[in-house]
């Protein structure tokens, strides 16, 4: 026998199911006024510094169907690369947003400011990115991924550099479609499958 480790295991995940909106976005589920406010309605407030951008996309299952029931959360730094709560962070950037795939079209829209690059441990610099967390019926543990931008320098990003199959890097890069507008699609499975993270 050995000494016991004083470690508790993480609670196992279960799918968020089809009715996740009731809990996380009640007005989207048709319950508009149970709370006085809904959390994560926008990652920015008026006066947020930086370039305001809009990211639109869909999330496709393994058959190519745009899922109508997915729910997303995003977390990001402000335009200078600081997260809310860090010294010098932009007070008008909460950095956090909740949004859902449209029930009719499956498309989501995220309006935010473009984040700056982020300092990591040991002097590493991460290219500007938004962290994305995705839950839905049939997803048994929330999926983590990142949105990078095609008009930024991603060449030295430590995470993108770790992707062995270089053509898959593209699955994490939002494409510019117009001034201030980007498209970022997520593919859960199969051809063009998005790189998901264990991080």
């Amino acid at each position: 026998m050995v000494q016991p480790l004083d470690i508790h295991e993480e609670t196992p995940s279960q799918t968020a199911g089809p009715y996740v909106h009731i809990g996380l976005m009640p007005s989207f589920a048709g319950i508009p006024d149970v709370y006085e406010n809904q959390l994560g309605e926008s990652p920015i407030a008026d006066g947020a510094k930086g370039e305001v951008i809009e990211i639109v996309g869909s999330i496709y299952d393994g058959t190519g169907w745009a899922m109508r029931d997915a729910l997303f959360e995003s977390w990001q730094a402000d335009a200078s690369g600081k997260f809310a709560g860090q010294d010098g962070a932009d007070p008008n950037v909460s950095g956090y947003c909740r949004f859902a795939a449209d029930g009719e079209t499956g498309e989501y829209t995220l309006k935010t400011v473009k984040p700056g690059s982020i300092a990591g441990r040991g002097g590493q610099v991460h290219a500007p990115h938004i962290s994305l967390w995705i839950v839905a019926r049939g997803i048994n543990i929330g999926l983590q991924t990142r949105i990078y931008f095609e008009d930024e320098d991603n060449s030295n990003d430590p995470l993108l550099s770790r992707i062995e199959q270089r053509q898959r890097v593209d699955t994490l890069i939002a494409k510019k479609t117009a001034y201030g507008k980007y498209r970022f699609d997520v593919r859960l499975q199969g051809e063009g499958e998005t790189v998901f993270l264990d991080i």
Binding site: T15, D61, G62, T63, W65, M67, W75, Q76, A77, F83, I118, A119, G120, R121, Q124, H126, H129, S131, A136, R137, G138, I139, N140, L143, R146, P158, L159, R162, I163, R168, L188, Q189, G190, E193, T194, V195, F196, L197, D198, I199
Partner: peptide, 20 residues
């Protein structure tokens, strides 16, 4: 529902940073 909604490729594992 999990059949078409589960990634078929392994997850990319990395040490967390400020974003996480």
């Amino acid at each position: 529902t999990s059949v078409a909604r589960s990634p078929s490729q392994p997850l990319l594992s990395m040490e967390s940073g400020a974003s996480e």
